[in-house]
């Protein structure tokens, strides 16, 4: 994992709000959302469609900065409102791994190259990147499909490659937006367990947006978002 410091929380959001448009067309997608994630913890972010889950995730992922509030990662303030305090793309490259609903692999690269590219753009030598990419694909059970193009892989295999890519640079933060939507329940649970395993083994903070209530036991912390309001929940209080 990339070392910044050893803070109490790997992810901290302080009252982040996201407003789209202005005047009559103003829409508040997320209001005063605060969250703390300790290292090694896996967070489930639940909520109905359109509740603002993805807005929260893209804000924490430094893709879609909030209108106000602060985002602190590894104890370092990264965003103050929409004001970037570091180079966001560079920070994303080094500290954040993404997994999406769709596997989002680059079609002109093979499975192993999709993992390799994430490391090479982070300055890892091609040979070292290839070795680690092989290790990750083996770890995720798709090592035998390393040289296949994404179009030759099943949905589950593609998703595993995407997970391998997210893990490639030893990120301190892993963000997953409905990563099991395209998978059957068995595969879906496997992926969730994988996130938990990575979080526990590597000390990363993981936030997973999910609709799947069957795998909630995998998560350490539960949050629910409704109408842009984020609220911490327990298994008992979850709807």
């Amino acid at each position: 994992m990339n070392n910044l410091s050893s803070p109490q929380y790997v992810i901290e959001t302080e009252a982040i709000t996201k407003i789209y448009g202005s005047g009559n067309t103003e829409v508040v997608a997320m209001r005063d959302a605060s969250m703390q994630v300790e290292p090694g913890k896996v967070v489930a972010l639940l909520g109905p469609s359109g509740s603002g889950k993805s807005t929260f995730l893209t804000a924490v992922g430094l893709i879609n900065p909030p209108t106000s509030g602060r985002i602190i990662i590894q104890g370092k303030a990264i965003l103050d409102g929409d004001n970037a305090l570091v180079n966001l793309r560079s920070f994303r490259r080094q500290h954040i791994g993404f997994v999406f609903q769709k596997s989002n692999l680059i079609p002109f690269l093979s499975a192993i190259e999709n993992v390799q590219v994430a490391m090479e753009i982070n300055g890892v030598s091609p040979s070292a990147a290839r070795t680690r990419a092989h290790e990750l694909l083996d770890y995720l059970g798709v090592g035998d499909r390393a040289n296949n193009s994404p179009s030759m892989l099943s949905g589950g295999q593609q998703q595993r490659v995407a997970v391998a890519r997210a893990l490639a640079n030893h990120p301190s933060v892993i963000l997953a937006d409905e990563p099991t939507a395209a998978l059957d329940s068995h595969r879906g649970r496997q992926v969730m367990e994988l996130f938990a395993q990575v979080a526990h083994e590597q000390g990363a903070g993981v936030i997973v947006v999910t609709h799947d209530h069957r795998s909630l036991d995998v998560f350490d912390i539960l949050y629910e978002m409704e109408d842009g309001i984020l609220e911490k929940k327990t298994r008992e209080t979850i709807a």
Binding site: I63, R89, R92, N104, I106, V117, I121
Partner: peptide, 17 residues
């Protein structure tokens, strides 16, 4: 390949790439 380019940006690829 605009989707792939957006993806590269998302995973942090610098502009020179």
């Amino acid at each position: 390949k605009i989707h792939s380019i957006a993806l590269l940006k998302l995973i942090g690829a610098p502009n020179y790439v």
